[in-house]
Write a protein that binds this DNA or RNA. Structure first.
Lengths: 336, 336
DNA sequence: CCCCTAACGCTAAACGTTTCGTTTATATTT
DNA sequence: AAATATAAACGAAACGTTTAGCGTTAGGGG
């Protein structure tokens, strides 16, 4: 059943050359043209494949990048993964995608797993991981690029979005259209992006001299259901907001479903701004106003930054790419 | 910057024991209690970690499973991944998740990548991959479990859902409630599950002696947008269906958005049955009737089957688990 | 015709494990 | 006390590569 593996030794024997020459050929060294032909033939004939494990043992390089994400059930995460991967593949790298399911222990374990697998670099969206733990990995010579979130106290390359101003801008759009009571459905308190988005919400209120009513701030968990539940809560308040801002895709989805269910007319009953997923925003009626995160840019910037570090180019370390979001205002927002 | 790696040799030197003894200890062999203490201390002191690459070279085992999926942008896929992973982790295996982006070449490449990474086994939802290619991997002694789809001509373990009857049952529910013109939004023709679901639709029509009107069959691509577009097409037909059946989650989402946009009242204008995602089905109003695929069972069955093969238990090879779906009829369906 | 210089190929030593066959130390039996 | 059995530790050879460093070859200039 199990075919015995073909090694360089076999190719060497087959061609009458030495193992070293085969290795040289494989790695693009100088080999006589006639021998090139010979070796190539042997490789095809025997079905030789480089044993990456053995190679990795020698070189301490695996040409593999680890991607460590909090979840795969969130299209922002998977979107980034996709874009990162595209760039890496173009550069001859493979990827190992890990999902730590928003679990602190798993996050640590999977990080160690990646290190054990000898990945050459890591791109991660961190959650609970400690600064020390990541530092340990970096000290081993494995470059890390953080995505979407920073880790306090850690000197590390990072690519993220200006969440504070994303939120600021979105809410400002509502304020300039006359809204004063603006509900916000925000992510879990512990999550960096949620914190920042809340800060933006608060700051814009301050800047416009509007008092923040904390009862308008609803903490969800970035899942569909909390968007659904919290929108209902907001709508049912006795002093309900005139506009609602939801801060990620899944909760936006849930919120819209709740609005449909309650026969709420957007924007006449409420103005509404959601997050992410342009595709959906176009589909909904009225067209949804959303904050658009540049997922492609994020993924590409992270991948390119990591590639740079892998080439031992440590210029501007640690660098921080803070990408701008775009607020797309469509029919779901009205002036009052 | 880069700490020099600690090896067994260092632990051996530190403890005054031989490398062989250290290895024995690591792998749970018999070692004097006093030496156990000594070694443990050294390991902690030096920060030793087994080099999995070197170990893999020797053992030809990596305790790693490859999961190869057509996309991560589909919650059916990510749901399965999650459940598979849970079981594997419990059994001491790690996973490498690969996304081949529904691309034939990438599917082949990533499969080879996994083989090169010396994964001990593979779980995949295949698409265009040839029977030969997969057979080649199996011949190398790497067990494969297919999920959700079969590959024609390949003797291979597989875990899937009885798609034909899933579709049959759903449509039957509509028929027994008096519907005769039933629209269906189906996946791409080339995809196995789509084929099967269409067969079920056709067969139930035959069994009830209802002629199939092919203009009621709409081929989508399993994405949100096609659900949106195709629902509109169906609704706008001059001889529109009285019920619509949508055959995956993403398209269901799109279809619902279209329905909302057109101010269609479900179920008075149309009866509606969707697919997957119980969470969403509960949220929508009226509660959505859906076909529920047992994602957890699928994932667990696939993982357990693979684990069995990894223990060299080849009983009932190739086995096929054909799991049953459940049709949950809620308010979105009415009698006419 | 010889020597020099490239160009190419070879030998052998790593890389960090596991594992086989042996040796050494200890305990048990006679 | 000698003989034997057992447990623990050891040395060394693998696993399939890469890579110095050295040796060989052929061709060209003097």
């Amino acid at each position: 059943m199990s075919e015995i593996a073909v090694t360089m030794k076999d190719v060497a024997r087959y061609t009458g050359l030495s193992i070293a020459t085969i290795s040289k050929y494989i790695n693009g060294g100088n080999v006589l043209d006639e021998n090139k032909v010979l070796i190539e033939k042997a490789i095809v004939e025997l079905g030789f494949k480089v044993n990456e494990i053995a190679r990795g043992l020698k070189t301490n390089k695996t040409k593999t990048i680890g991607i460590l994400m909090p979840t795969l059930e969130n299209m922002f995460c998977t979107g980034i993964i996709s874009n990162v991967e595209n760039i890496l593949i173009q550069n001859g790298y493979s990827t190992i995608i890990c999902d730590y399911k928003e679990d602190a222990k798993l996050e640590k374990d999977k990080l160690d797993f990646l290190v054990n697998k000898m990945v050459d670099g890591i791109i991660t969206m961190p959650h609970c991981i400690s600064q020390e733990h990541l530092q340990g990995v970096i000290n081993k010579g494995i470059p890390i690029v953080l995505v979407d979130r920073i880790v306090k106290g850690l000197e590390c390359d990072v690519v993220l979005v200006d969440n504070l101003n994303a939120s600021y801008d979105a809410v400002e759009q509502l304020i300039t259209r006359g809204h004063r009571r603006i509900g916000i459905i925000i992510g879990p308190e512990a999550v960096y992006t949620a914190e920042e988005r809340l800060k933006g919400y608060i700051r814009v209120h301050e800047d416009y001299n509007i008092e923040v009513d904390t009862s308008l701030i609803k903490n969800g968990d970035y899942q569909i259901e909390s968007g659904y539940t919290l929108l209902k809560e907001l709508v049912r308040m006795k002093d309900a907001p005139t506009a609602i801002f939801v801060t990620n895709y899944e909760m936006t989805l849930g919120a819209i479903m709740a609005a449909n269910e309650l026969n709420i007319n957007i924007p006449s009953d409420f103005s509404f701004i959601g997050f992410d997923n342009l595709q959906m925003a176009k589909i909904v009626k009225p067209p949804l106003s959303i904050v658009i995160q540049p997922m492609q840019q994020i993924g590409e910037a992270a991948a390119n930054l990591l590639l740079k570090r892998l080439k031992m180019d440590m210029a501007n370390f640690p660098s921080m790419f803070r990408l701008k979001t775009e607020v797309s205002i469509k029919g779901s927002v009205r002036e009052i």
